[in-house]
Structure formats: C-alpha cells, structure tokens
Amino acid sequence: MIYRLIVKEFTLELRRKSVISGIALYLISLVFICYLSFSLRLSVISEAIWSALFWLAILFSVINSVAKSFIGEKRGLSLYYYTIASPKAIIISKIIYNSLLCFILSLLGYVLFQVFISDPVQDTPLFFLTLILTSTAFSSALSLISGIASKTNHSNILMAVLSFPIIISILLMAIKVTKNVLDGLDWSASYDELLNLMAINCILSGLAYLLFPYIWRS
C-alpha cells in the first residue's frame, strides 16, 4: 500500500511538469540572487556565510515544495484517499516521498552553489550524510505541518508561521555540521550534532506518524 502510494505520488508529480520546473526555477533564482547580492567571484565569502546561505536557500525551496503536498490537493482527492488507504500509510508515503524530494532539491542546490558561488566542501561523504538526515527531518516536520495548514483558512501564510519555529533546531544543527565540514574538521567534531539530528529525526517522524490520524479524521 505504502509503495503504491509513493509510486502514485511520483507519477502525479511527473505529470505536472510545470510544478517541478517551477520549484527548480525558484531555487535557481534564489541562488542567483545570493550570487548577485554578494557580488561574488570578486570577494570570497567565509565558510559560515556559505553554510548559512546554502541552508536558507534550501529551506525556502523545501517549504514551498512540501507545502503543496496536502495544500495543493483537491478536496475530492483527499476524500478518495480516505476511503482506500489508512492515514498511517498515507503519512509514511508522504514522508518518504517528501524526503526524496528534499534530498533531490538539496542536491540541486549544492550543484548550483558549486556553479555560481564556490565549492568549499572537503569531506563529501559527511556532507551528503548531513543532507540526507536534514531532508528526512525537514520532510517529516513539514508533511505534518502541511496537513495542519491545509485545514485552515489561510494555509499558505500559516504554513510558514507554523513551520519556522519547528524547523529552526534542525536548521541550526545542519548549519553547524556544514560549517564543520567546510572547515575540514574531523568526523568526531560533528559527532554530537549528527546524533542530535538523528534524535530529532526519530522524534519528529514518530510523532508525525502518531499524530497524523487525528488530523486526517475530519
């Protein structure tokens, strides 16, 4: 069931080409704005600024792309899901699908940063591990929030308002690890933060799994 739901998400996504290209364009313009406003290539930015800029760009594009996972859906469609699938299967499939989406987006963001700004990453495996961990954390937090926000009157504003305080701790950890990676520090230096990210992942995905049925009921 979960597998079929994920496949369905992908086919739906691939059918709506405009949405994908829209998100990609959003990310590209964000990175380009960063590039222009810092007038880079002329001046070198520090590692701290690189990681902060990178994660901010990722954050905004991820919030925009995950927000539509429930908000964009038609009322009839959700009623249809309600009859064929259990809420737990739905939230798990959404989380898995969204984390893949987030991971692809952050990869794209990394490539764009390489092209436009610079590539100070020294320890690529560690950096990728961070990307994977943060994208699963982002997706489990944002999937549930998107479910809440879709039931309200001003869902787009609420999506941002509700998700920012929850995302902050993930973002802080990610920025710190990334800075460690850029500084070329050893794995042991960011061990604490990685463990923390894992813990956040477990808490958020577990809670999303437990709480989602309550949202879905209405």
């Binding site: 937090a141 305080p165 929850i166 701790s169 802080l172 813990a199 808490i203 958020l204 709480l211």
Partner: peptide, 10 residues
C-alpha cells in the same frame, strides 16, 4: 504536541 517535541532539543 508536535511543536513542544520539536523544542526539546532546542
């Protein structure tokens, strides 16, 4: 509940 859990690490 969700937000409180997310604040614990913070």
């Amino acid at each position: 509940i969700f937000a409180f859990a997310a604040m614990i690490p913070l």
